[in-house]
Design a protein around this nucleic acid. Sequence first.
DNA 1: CGGATTGTTGAGGATACTCAAGTTAGGTGG
DNA 2: CCACCTAACTTGAGTATCCTCAACAATCCG
Lengths: 236, 236
Amino acid sequence: MTAPDRSILKALPPFARLTDAELDEIAATATSRLYCAGMSLYGQGDDAEEFYVVVLGRLRVTQITSTGEQIVVRVVNPGELCGIAHALGRTTYPATAMAVVDSVALAWPTDRWDDIVRRFPSFAQVAMGMIGGRLQEAHARIREMSTEVVERRVGHTVLRLAQQSGKREPEGIRIDFPISKQDLAEMAGTTLHTVSRILTAWEEAGLVGTGRQKLLVKEPHRLLLIADGAEEGLLR
Amino acid sequence: MTAPDRSILKALPPFARLTDAELDEIAATATSRLYCAGMSLYGQGDDAEEFYVVVLGRLRVTQITSTGEQIVVRVVNPGELCGIAHALGRTTYPATAMAVVDSVALAWPTDRWDDIVRRFPSFAQVAMGMIGGRLQEAHARIREMSTEVVERRVGHTVLRLAQQSGKREPEGIRIDFPISKQDLAEMAGTTLHTVSRILTAWEEAGLVGTGRQKLLVKEPHRLLLIADGAEEGLLR
DNA sequence: CGGATTGTTGAGGATACTCAAGTTAGGTGG
DNA sequence: CCACCTAACTTGAGTATCCTCAACAATCCG
């Protein structure tokens, strides 16, 4: 609920190249908020009154279709922007953002966006690069869903997750926040049943470790071979 | 091959709000190029040496996967940016852009991008909005591919095409550049066989008119009902 | 007019979904 | 701390959708 200190901003990529005076000015209009696991920052269809930068924790961004199915658009990691509907030319949020673990985010009123972009080109540049990264990820998903069989799609989904949000550990790359089979299914465009069968097969082969909302990628390299089609799938 | 006149720039959304002096300055570093149908502006994997704004014609942007399958990323219409790999944080083009009809585009050296963005916030704002639109379209495709059966997916693909690149005519909305069944399949994530069957069924119902690389949407409203699942599909 | 590209249509079959039933894990309250 | 309850997950069986394979037809262009 309080305005953040400049040192917090400085550690976030969008603000990394600003001077102390500039940071203070930007910090002055920000609000720091704590979201407990399960709380949402904003909902699909709401007026886009604020935009956010995540400081700590993880968010899951989802969309609901008109027929009630849900898809996971992305996971938001610390340092990333979200809720920037205005920059994308919208007045409402196209999706819902929810904290999957206790999270801290900075919020600015949406009408600060244009001013910040205009006055701080380095912010604009980083923001555009982040949007670009999301666009490329989206195209990768489209490509995968168009051309790959489920097992490879789930492979790429898991690998992307490991790369973007994973934590290196002695045994492998751990996804250190709760992720359900249903979530993975909604990311890969399949059902939780199919994800369950695939992960069980991979677990038996020692590629991954799974559990209730748990995921550990033990052999990313071999998983990549499967995802890229260089090695036969393990299902069935 | 020649530098363009400021009046040409002024008609393009990214430059619409600049002064004559600013336009002249931007025009000075631009090259106007004619691409005959079938020529490519750049290829997937090439160094991103230039970015473009299309003035006339249509481009088709495609990606080839490691296994040789192709997908259509998008169609580029006059007034739109393309080849902005640098802005998205890349050094190479992630896709190939090819003229589907004779087209004119303006080209700038990639290293002009940062300078233009920094000095002309209105350009930056329009550019970000365009990238945002692409991101939303990509998410719509992901949502459709995750949750919808083929016929509805093809419906949404055709409707998007009609909306973005169609031309109102007495009989309906015409796609006035060559578009093959294979192209539609690569946009909808299916095969040309399935697209052919679906369009034949729609044609028999009077929803569309089709032909070799031709497409006319006669009843967009009824097609929308099918695409949105409010009405039964016509296939089989 | 001939070749090449694009599109049509049918048959068969595999992939992955749906439906169903049960199991495990974790959190909560007594 | 244990019992219970719910949410998450597993596994099996049957089947629909849509892809693959195949052969042919139509259209365009030079």
